[in-house]
Amino acid sequence: MDDEQRLIALAREGDNGAFQSLLGPHVEPACKLAFVMLGDWQEAEDAVQEAALKSWRATKKLREGTSRFRPWFLTVVANECRSRRRGRWFRTLRVAEPRIATQADVADVAAGRADLERAVAALDRSARLLLFLHFYLDLSHEEAGRVLGISGAAAKTRLYRTLRALRPELELETAL
């Protein structure tokens, strides 16, 4: 049993210190995930706070033998973000869409990278989210799929299509 599994076991028994030790390293990635989904830092932090509370209350429901806290917690965060996006208060935060590149930036980077930035900006939200989960948060296909509410195989297929759209000449075997 590794450190994380021991902390999970303690948290399941109601050890708040263990839960906070588990949670601490994942707050910032969770905030970034929430920001990607909601487009606003304040909303993102609120969502992570609510997700942290829900996770704490649900810790006892963590299955015996659950070995990784990170994908489980990020799934709770993603569900909270989806719930908020469905809410009446949600507004289309056009102004908060993550900035991709200005013309000055584009002039500074290689043409290929500028193309990539434009291509990523043109993707729909769920495709961008999948790229973020897999390449930025280093989640496996199965873990990213769980966060998105789809199977690992479906996540891999979507990732394949998205990458193919981004860089058609790419050797996908290496990227995936």
């Binding site: 708040n16 707050v27 910032e28 905030c31 990607v36 830092w41 992570v48 706070q49 942290a52 993550p98």
Partner: peptide, 18 residues
């Protein structure tokens, strides 16, 4: 494009659990 969460976000989230 994402940058960093607001300062103190981690502390505030952990405090809410406490």
């Amino acid at each position: 494009e994402i940058g960093a969460p607001p300062p103190g976000a981690r502390q505030r989230v952990l405090a809410s659990i406490s």
